[in-house]
Design a binder for these strands. Structure first.
Length: 304
DNA sequence: AGGTTGACCTGGACGC
DNA sequence: TGCGTCCAGGTCAACC
């Protein structure tokens, strides 16, 4: 169940291992579910591309790809065509300013869903069940996408602007931009935190933990929170996420790092998964309720 | 239209 | 042992 800290950890691990490598070929499994773009589109975008960087956007892992101009021959023919078609002096001046043909840029987007993993392995490593995609790298290694429950998604973006999603990054947003996200909303605060179109990257675990630290009940309507309470929540969300990133994410069930190592430190959850156990502040039993189909944990005494 | 619910999917835990 | 049932939760379509 990768949320922002887990995806951040995975993206950093992948960056260390695969940046600079070139994707030579791609194999995509027969099941179409994990693909948001067509298999054809993914394959043609990835094959031959160099991985320039790996980063996180919300809960998405983004590979920035660049492809050198395919060959000198195509390049000359393309530019020749363009010059002959538009031969105005203006056009020539623009071309003169950019002597090098720009490289093609694209993004490979991976959403891990609930159980997705991206593994860097030697080619002879045993093929895990539910392997849906394999990218063979020029270094000889393979980048494998494994996802038993198939909630994960693969896609490619070729637009000039690159990949973007709605919502703001909780670790980048200013308090002044944070407040209006919740101001006129009647939904429970828990649901608001999970809404990726408002804040991107917060999932069930860190929503519960943030609300606990801010002393806010998960069912509390967003619009009823004072500016002071929102300030507490703002700080709590950032604190929880930063602590979790520092710890390498919460290691639960099938969450593992880029080489399959399971050894991340368990984050100190104060309410999540602690139903019936005493609150670490006051000793009251932690309650579990269901909001929007998600289990939510809170202390009835500390959270109002 | 904003808010809420259920379907998707599989493996693991649990009860009988 | 083995089967059935429930639960996990990210996202989206469909509903209220």
């Amino acid at each position: 169940m990768p949320e922002l800290p887990e995806v951040e950890t995975i993206a950093r691990g992948l960056a260390q291992r695969v940046v600079g490598d070139v994707i030579e070929s791609v194999w995509l499994g027969s099941k179409p579910e994990p693909l948001k773009s067509s298999a054809q589109e993914i394959a043609t975008t990835l094959e031959g591309a160099r991985i320039q960087s790996v980063r996180r956007v919300g809960k998405h892992i983004v590979f920035d790809l660049e492809r050198p101009p395919t060959s000198a021959k195509t390049r000359t023919s393309k530019s020749a065509r363009r010059t002959s078609r538009k031969n105005s002096p203006d056009n020539r001046r623009v071309r003169a300013k950019t002597p090098a043909e720009p490289v093609e840029i694209a993004n490979w987007i991976v959403h891990l869903g609930m159980t997705g993993q991206l593994l860097v392995c030697p080619p002879d490593a045993e093929l895990a069940k539910h392997t849906h995609a394999i990218a063979k790298l020029a270094s000889g290694r393979e980048l494998r996408f494994v996802d038993p429950r198939r909630f994960g998604r693969l896609s490619v973006v070729r637009s000039q602007n690159g990949f973007e999603t709605a919502g703001v990054e909780p670790l980048d947003v200013s308090f002044d931009a944070f407040v209006p996200l919740f101001r006129k909303r009647k939904l429970p605060m828990k649901s608001a935190l999970l809404n990726q179109k408002l804040l991107r990257g917060v999932g069930n675990i860190y929503a519960d933990e943030s609300l606990f630290r801010a002393g806010i009940r998960p069912r509390r309507r967003a619009a009823t929170l004072s500016r002071e309470k929102l300030c507490l929540l703002y700080k709590s969300v950032q604190q929880v996420l930063q602590e979790a990133i520092a710890a390498g994410g919460s290691s639960i069930s099938d969450y593992v790092g880029a080489e399959g190592e399971p050894g991340f430190f368990q984050m100190q959850h104060r309410v999540y998964g602690r139903e019936g156990e005493p609150c670490l502040n006051c000793g009251t039993a932690i309650k579990r309720i269901v909001i929007a189909g998600r289990s939510s944990h809170y202390c009835p005494h500390c959270q109002k």
